[in-house]
Nucleic acid binder design. Sequence first.
DNA 1: AATAATAATATGTACGCACATAATATGTCA
DNA 2: TGACATATTATGTGCGTACATATTATTATT
Lengths: 233, 233
Amino acid sequence: MTIAERLTWRDVYDTIQGRILDATYRPGARLPRDEDIALDLGCARATVQRAMRALADEGLIERKRKGGTHVLRLPATRATFHIPVARLEVEATGARYGYQLVSREEADAPRAVAAALEMRAPARMLHVRALHLANQRPYLFEDRWICVETVPEILDVDLSRENANEWLLQHRPYSRCDLRFFAMKAAADDAALLQAEEGDALFGIARSTWNGSDPITTVTALAPPGYEMHSRA
Amino acid sequence: MTIAERLTWRDVYDTIQGRILDATYRPGARLPRDEDIALDLGCARATVQRAMRALADEGLIERKRKGGTHVLRLPATRATFHIPVARLEVEATGARYGYQLVSREEADAPRAVAAALEMRAPARMLHVRALHLANQRPYLFEDRWICVETVPEILDVDLSRENANEWLLQHRPYSRCDLRFFAMKAAADDAALLQAEEGDALFGIARSTWNGSDPITTVTALAPPGYEMHSRA
DNA sequence: AATAATAATATGTACGCACATAATATGTCA
DNA sequence: TGACATATTATGTGCGTACATATTATTATT
């Protein structure tokens, strides 16, 4: 005699996902009400709700109050990228991490920087350029502007020894982050720092962060040819 | 006299996030048990659990059974990118979308393609190259290999009229997706198709999809100079 | 026939309880 | 002291209920 096992929300998730993948529920189709699925599978509505929310988060289905649940017609590929701290990324490959400050100076924010941080008035900032190295070779070159008004302590940090990115992450958590990936031809000075050729195709990552509406920092990082950004889902 | 309002999990979320942002809970610090937070704020443990899971999903905290909840030391930037269907992306900008088949032929999978799809034996595939246009101008050039064994119907689709990407999404949902972003120097033929200069820095997106362990397709898309990939969180 | 008020309905959320699970801490024994 | 079994504990999950909320469908009104 079989014991009645309880279904976990994961079981329900797999069942529904399976029905979408094998086209029992086709793109655009409406799924039964949570309550009916619960009755059908033999579990509580809350369990179905948990599974459905996960499926919705992953972009497979769309839910609307009263409107019901539908399979998305064009499941937008939704990829989550983990932008690692350079040091950890390097160390994960087994290489020796190195850091080198290239320049550091206080200056007023250029228009482009102010725009990237959505600042009204131009403000006093700290401009830092630095190289991250893997086994002595350039791994990432970052050009960073830090808002002195939001993070005054940064002026007292010895950025020739400490990496601005990690210092900020540990001392100034952010509530919002804008991210941009792009490709760029290497200018002469970028190429020199990255030991690449002028005109090489570089991978660029631009990031701006805020705490509430206070701008923290904006940084553009360039990687030498061959760099790739991965994600698997 | 004030009415006792019920807290929503979102309220709890905001409270805890606030405490992390204002350093009440510092990086690495251990948070109180869910039950104590619930008692403290005046709600059910389930409500705290819901908020905590959201915070954990967003990469702010880490939870371990018995180990408790900790603020992450280095909050890895976690960005979710929506890789849109080219047509929708173009139409969203208000431009007219166009599609043009460049080539289509059956062939055995080259080693690199078989590797990208983690296939053991080389298999028969359909090789399709096509251009996505915005206002008649090249927007994205895709070079795609489709596994005929997994998707035999693709041979009967008129790919000069229908876009392979959208057809596949609508008829072959995938359960797994590998994604790669990179920068590349434009070769002569790529440049010609994209109306760019040879040597220009192109943004590349490579994607492979499977249903279960069955390979569906692998595609490399190249965008002309200026293309950017965005995300905001 | 168009518009506004109203009812109906599927999903979303809060709560309290019981129990499952995975770590960690503790204790036992060699 | 070290290895292994055992207890402890914080998070994770399932259930049933009640109610909230957002939309859609219906009806009443002009």
